[in-house]
Simulated scan of single mutants.
Amino acid sequence: MASGWAPDGAVQDQIDDSVSDAVRLARSRLPTGPGETHCQHCGQEIPEARRVAMPGAVLCVDCQSRQDRPAFASAYNRRGSKDSQLR
């Protein structure tokens, strides 16, 4: 239920617009263009299926996975309860 002078559904419209803007921004940051036929890191051939699915790809799946993996992972569950950290 909207309050004041806002029409019904105004809050949902604002949420939808925010999500659409975030999706548009994320898509604009994706690489474009022909990409590479061989991985820039290891030199292995990038499969045709990956090049079609991800235009502008310059790394093979293995190298991209290693690059996307966080460098440091904490052994502590910082979001859970203290009981879960004691186990």
Rank of each mutant, 00 (worst) to 15 (best):
L59T: 07
D8R: 11
A6H: 13
G9H: 02
L30E: 01
P55W: 02
F72H: 15
A49L: 08
D8P: 05
D83A: 15
H41A: 13
S65L: 09
T37Y: 02
E36M: 09
A10Q: 01
P55F: 05
N77I: 09
C60Y: 03
C42Q: 03
S18F: 09
A53Y: 04
T32I: 08
R87E: 14
A6Q: 10
A57R: 05
E45T: 13
P34H: 07
P70G: 05
D13S: 12
V58N: 06
R50S: 04
L59M: 14
I15S: 03
Q67H: 10
S20Y: 01
T32A: 10
C39N: 04
G33E: 04
Q64P: 00
S18H: 10
P55R: 06
T32W: 00
R78I: 09
G80Q: 07
D13F: 03
P70R: 14
Q64E: 12
L25S: 14
M1A: 12
V52Q: 11
D68P: 00
R29L: 05
V11K: 12
G35H: 03
R51M: 07
A73H: 08
P31E: 05
A22W: 00
G4L: 02
R29S: 02
R66V: 06
P7R: 10
D8I: 08
D83Y: 08
G43W: 00
L86T: 13
Q67D: 09
A73R: 15
V61F: 10
M1S: 12
D62I: 12
G33T: 06
G4C: 05
G35E: 02
S3E: 13
Q44D: 09
V58L: 04
P31T: 06
G33R: 06
G56H: 05
L30G: 00
G80E: 07
A53M: 01
K82S: 07
Y76E: 15
Y76K: 15
L59F: 13
M54E: 13
G56M: 06
D62N: 13
V58W: 03
Q64L: 12
V23N: 05
P47G: 04
D62R: 14
V11N: 11
C39R: 00
A10M: 01
E45Q: 12
D62G: 06
V11R: 15
R78S: 03
V11F: 12
A57L: 02
